[in-house]
């Protein structure tokens, strides 16, 4: 097991180098330069001013020199300074956005698992019954509804018409003046619509996986055996069937890890939530190379870590994999 872990970790090094090359290449292949976005079509900017800006951002150097400098800083965990006019360190920009995005995504992920797993199990145990049909309709409705549209309708209904929930942002104006509990309640109120909408949209995938997995497991011989032993249906389903049906959920959980730091631009724009999606999108549009590359590298690293964690969890959960692998190694 340790040997396996070490091998996986070592394999990540060439992968990471590849990721930096691709990241750097892709963003530099995109037409346009950071300077363009700041000065193009501005009557007050001369060609000389443009060159001055290019020099300031070291865009006049050859590409491999730029790449070398960037990676050199990267290994020291320095993501460089943003090319936006504020010139702040990339890491500071990410740090101020990351907590919001991670917390939101965590809440949504927890709700997704807490709701989708029971829905899937119920659908499987009541297969082809009305409960199965209705939950299917419900989760697919969430999957198919354009979320921005649903968001706007809910905002209009609860925010403008009924006036019971705030429309956008994270805090009310002047929330600093209130006590901590008031602030928490205020934040919670702001999050009701975005979190409900995001959770509603995410249920379909996992619940369908659970339903299929459960149906497959329920058809296995050992379930028949358990039933034949005279175990109660509850024990059969929750002790014997569910544990085996949960395996695909682990894969999905592992794959969700990089998603935790990624935000949706549309979602964040509509709710005026300052998250990673908007930061990244603005960075791409402004050709803010250090920022875009920083976000991509962090995302890629998290993907690798997530995959590794999922594989490890798999091995822990499933003795077949654990033993099979040890034999093979």
């Amino acid at each position: 097991m340790l040997y396996y872990l070490a091998k996986r970790l070592l394999l990540m090094i060439p992968l990471l180098i590849g990721i930096t090359i691709i990241t750097f290449g892709v963003i530099h292949l995109a037409p346009g330069e950071p300077v363009e976005m700041q000065v193009a079509m501005n009557p007050k900017v001369s060609a000389e001013a443009r060159e001055r800006l290019r020099k300031f951002y070291e865009l006049d150097k050859p590409l491999h020199v730029q790449y070398g400098k960037w990676v050199g800083r990267l290994v020291r965990l320095d993501f460089g300074r943003s090319f936006a006019p504020d010139g702040r360190p990339v890491i500071a920009k990410i740090r101020e956005r990351l907590p919001v995005t991670i917390s939101l995504n965590m809440i949504v992920l927890i709700l997704e698992f807490a709701l989708a797993i029971p829905i899937g199990v119920m659908a499987a145990t009541h297969r082809d019954g009305p409960l199965d049909r209705w939950t299917t309709v419900f989760v697919f409705l969430g999957f198919a509804t354009p979320l921005f549209w649903l968001s706007l309708i809910l905002m209009y209904l609860f925010g403008v018409r009924l006036g019971v929930l705030p429309i956008s942002g994270l805090h009310s104006l002047g929330y600093e003046a209130h006590g901590i509990w008031w602030q928490i309640a205020d934040l919670a109120k702001h999050l009701v619509i975005p979190i409900s909408v995001a959770t509603f949209g995410s249920l379909a995938g996992l619940s369908r996986y659970m339903r299929t997995g459960m149906i497959e497991v329920l058809g296995q011989d050992y379930i028949t055996t358990a039933r034949a032993k005279g175990l109660s249906e509850r024990v059969v389903i929750y002790r014997h069937a569910l544990r085996n049906a949960l395996l695909p959920a682990i894969t999905i959980l592992g794959l969700s890890v990089p998603g935790l730091i990624g935000g949706s631009v549309i979602f964040e724009s509509i709710f005026a939530i300052p998250g990673m999606g908007k930061l990244f999108m603005d960075g791409v549009m402004a050709r803010d190379y250090p920022l875009v590359m920083g976000v991509l590298v962090i995302g890629a690293v998290l993907t690798l870590v997530g995959n590794l964690l999922a594989d490890l969890a798999y091995a822990v959960a499933d003795p077949r994999i654990r033993h099979g692998r040890e034999r093979a190694l």
Partner: peptide, 20 residues
């Protein structure tokens, strides 16, 4: 003078109507 950043114009319009 409070400068609120609301990237979506439809949202901003609803905030206007709701007093935000």
């Amino acid at each position: 003078y409070v400068y609120r950043i609301i990237p979506d114009t439809a949202t901003m319009y609803m905030e206007l109507k709701a007093g935000g």
